[in-house]
């Protein structure tokens, strides 16, 4: 019998057991978690179908990785510890930019948006995965690793490790980890910020495993006690219909292009919410409006000592 080496396949029983545990313990008030039946059904169904939706593109992406590896600059051995250390950092940096692109450009946001479409934040949310990631072509971002000389199988395993790591951080049950851990790694606290729709928290904390990339590239935002995250999208969905959840942003892009084809590039590659006349909300406009409101608030009066 062949033992699977895909970390996601190996971790699947753990995913199932931990969701059960979170639901049951939350029911009896032992930990903080909020579940809603239809929301859970959508998250898990998205996850289930996502395992199939990648298949049509899998051949192409694998062939592209093999081609890159055949034209590699170096030969990096899969058996060396240093090579695994190197691929860990290289993959995690790639993930950061993939994730940032997936939030800041609409064509890739269309594939990623459904991961953020739940108004809940629990372990089932982690499994709310895209059906259109392969079509969006973001897998191409990992090709330079094979071109550098990392074997495609090594890259695939490391991608799986990253995905499995990111599972456990989708929870409200864990408050904050020790300070040293919060400083270096992506944690439930950091990722709650990432899933929040509060203007202050938008487009922050793109990290996969290491939060240091956000600190380095200026996208880090700590979770603040005075501002609890509100989860979901800036404009939350009004349906639990799986097809609408999976494809609504793609349909929105198509409708916009049909209506105003001369702005096709903007509709595809502008930030989510971009419109030619600026009538829609982007993260930037929402943040600007929020900042203006903060500045307009009267400063707290200092009480002088008697």
């Amino acid at each position: 019998m062949k033992i699977p080496t895909d970390p996601v396949t190996l971790a699947t029983p753990f995913f199932i057991l931990s969701v059960i545990l979170e639901i049951v313990l939350a029911r009896f008030g032992k930990l903080k978690a909020r579940y809603e039946t239809k929301d859970t059904a959508v998250s898990l169904s998205m996850g289930l179908v996502s395992t199939l939706s990648g298949l049509p593109i899998a051949g192409l992406s694998f062939a592209a990785a093999i081609w890159c590896y055949h034209h590699r600059l170096f030969t990096i051995p899969m058996t060396a510890v240093w090579a695994w250390v190197l691929v860990f950092f290289a993959e995690d940096l790639t993930y950061y930019w993939f994730h940032r692109l997936s939030h800041e450009r609409r064509a890739w946001w269309a594939a990623h948006v459904n991961h953020h479409s739940s108004q809940h934040y629990n372990l089932s949310t982690a499994l709310r995965q895209t059906w259109t990631g392969g079509v969006a072509g973001t897998w191409a971002l990992w090709l330079p690793l094979s071109l550098l000389g990392f074997p495609p199988a090594m890259v695939a395993i490391e991608k799986g490790v990253s995905l499995v790591y990111q599972y456990w951080i989708h929870t409200e049950a864990i408050g904050r980890m020790p300070r040293w851990f919060e400083a270096v790694f992506n944690t439930p606290s950091h990722h709650r910020v990432h899933h929040a729709r509060n203007p202050r928290y938008l487009d922050k904390n793109y990290a996969g495993i290491l939060i240091v990339w956000d600190r380095l590239f200026g996208t880090f935002q700590p979770e603040l006690d005075e501002e609890a995250p509100r989860y979901g999208l800036v404009h939350n969905l009004g349906t639990f219909n799986l097809l609408r959840v999976a494809f609504h942003e793609w349909i929105g892009i198509a409708q916009d292009i049909v209506r105003e084809p001369r702005h096709t590039l903007g509709w595809l590659f502008g930030p989510p919410g971009w419109s030619p006349d600026g009538s829609r909300d982007t993260s930037a406009t929402l943040k600007t409006a929020w900042l203006a409101r903060q500045e307009a608030k009267p400063a707290p009066v200092k009480r002088e000592a008697a």
Binding site: D39, Q119, H120, H235, N236, L237, G238, F240
Partner: peptide
């Protein structure tokens, strides 16, 4: 919508 709200 579920136990949350949609606002428009």
């Amino acid at each position: 919508i579920g136990d949350g709200y949609l606002a428009r």
